[in-house]
């Protein structure tokens, strides 16, 4: 049959020549290839000691931001929790008491803010949803742990360090 593309290639199963049948040249060739790789530099990144550079839009662990005066930006509006497709975020809001103006920017703040890192898919929808620019996924890789309960990160791990420190 004529081929339409003229790209048809006829393959014939030729009987092996003597050199091919004794295998040894092919084996020696293979051995030389593996020996070449034996002396090649390994491509491994030795992870905990050595880290690969992240790209600029890498999404890692979340951090809750503070404003320029060191007050927490989050106002516990719940939009992040609402936007989260994995339902990883929960929060309990509280009203700011007089005298706490240095701590929280708005009258309402998150008393408890928890992210379950096992549920989180690092999609970044929470940072897109946030009207206060309070949450960003600009951290490192979330470290491994032994217990499920230790993957629920509270404010102690999420909130940025205060400015004066």
């Amino acid at each position: 049959m004529e081929s339409f593309s003229n790209k048809r290639k006829v393959l014939e199963a030729k009987p092996l020549s003597f050199g091919e049948r004794i295998y040894l040249p092919a084996i020696l060739k293979g051995l030389s290839i593996t020996l070449k790789h034996f002396f090649r530099k390994s491509v491994t990144v030795r992870y905990p000691e050595q880290k690969r550079e992240f790209s600029e839009n890498f999404r890692g662990m979340h951090s809750l931001k503070r404003d320029e005066e060191g007050r927490e930006r989050c106002t516990a509006c719940g939009l992040c929790a609402l936007s989260c497709p994995a339902e990883a975020i929960t929060m309990i809001s509280a009203e700011r008491k007089p005298g706490e103006e240095k701590l929280y920017r708005e009258e309402k703040y998150a008393a408890v803010y928890e992210i379950n890192m096992l549920r989180c898919i690092f999609c970044g929808l929470c940072e897109e949803a946030c009207p206060k620019e309070a949450i960003y996924l600009d951290g490192d890789i979330v470290p491994a742990d032994y217990l499920r309960k230790d993957f629920i990160y509270g404010k102690d791990k999420l909130v940025e360090a205060p400015l004066n420190q």
Partner: peptide
């Protein structure tokens, strides 16, 4: 170790 080196890896370290 030899397996690792031949596969451009590091091996047990």
């Amino acid at each position: 170790k030899i397996a690792a080196f031949m596969q451009d890896r590091v091996g047990p370290n």
